[in-house]
Amino acid sequence: MADATMTAPGAVTTAKTTLQDLLPKIVLAPSFAIILVFVYGFIIFTGFLSFSGSKLLPDFSTWVGFENYVRLFRHPNWIVSLQNLAIFSVLYIVICSVIGLGLAILLDQKIRGEGFLRPIYLYPMALSFIVTGVAWKWFLDPGIGLEHAMHQIGWESFSFRWIKDRDFAIYTIVIAAIWQSSGFVMAMFLAGLRGVDNEIIKAAQIDGASTFMIYRRIIIPLMRPVFLSAFVVLAHLAIKSYDLVVAMTDGGPGTSTWTPALFMTKFTFGRNEMGMGAASAMVMMMMIFAIIVPYLYSELGGHKK
């Protein structure tokens, strides 16, 4: 290339290789520094906050030890939040995976119009959770939504008031979240299904296996990494669930649909309890780490082998 015309090709080549060695590091350095400060730096900052007596603004002059954590786990709203998180995340992850896998298998049957159907299931993912939340809030509202429409077309006995019922409101949030995310899970599974080696399937067919058996014994077990990825994506979305709840119920009726993320913002910014808010944020972070770390470990460990 250009160095052919140079008088001292050797020196230039060394400079070039050093540059080539350095370039990735130089390019990555700013983002590395930014992540170091704004992610890990602030995690440490929040950790300190959670042991301080901060109320309105960060205050590092009073240290209260684990008191914020003790108060947190004694607070009825936090207990409700944890229960809701358990209900929400289990149903959300399981149902999303089942529907996503089901849709992907159906779409994988080389049907006509797949290019048209696939985006239909994917589009909800393009909406923000706020839009999804508002739309479902209106749709489920007995006064203007589904129930009202059913009454208007003459089905007077129809009743669906879950969003107004403190025992069932959390399930309406599950429904909206599943509607939003199933298409995305479907896309993940579809990509996985397309990656399955045709030779294996043909071999199974020659052995006389039914389609059901092929899916149950061969294809679905092969989807294991996809299940894992879907689980990690959905689980952290579940723990962070905030915008959907705010848009749909804002924690109501009563305090029945509080989630940990809602608790964190309400306590930190609304109630001037920054210390407790930080403690709840730390607990949430530990929950996410409990999911992500084993996942990364298994992924990275796999490459080394």
Binding site: K55, P76, G252, P253, G254, T255, S256, R271, N272
Partner: peptide, 20 residues
């Protein structure tokens, strides 16, 4: 009362109002 106490009262009132 300050925000922390006010909101603690809110929790109880809204739970009572909603039959909890």
């Amino acid at each position: 009362s300050p925000a922390a106490i006010k909101n603690a009262m809110y929790d109880v009132i809204t739970r009572e109002y909603n039959g909890d």
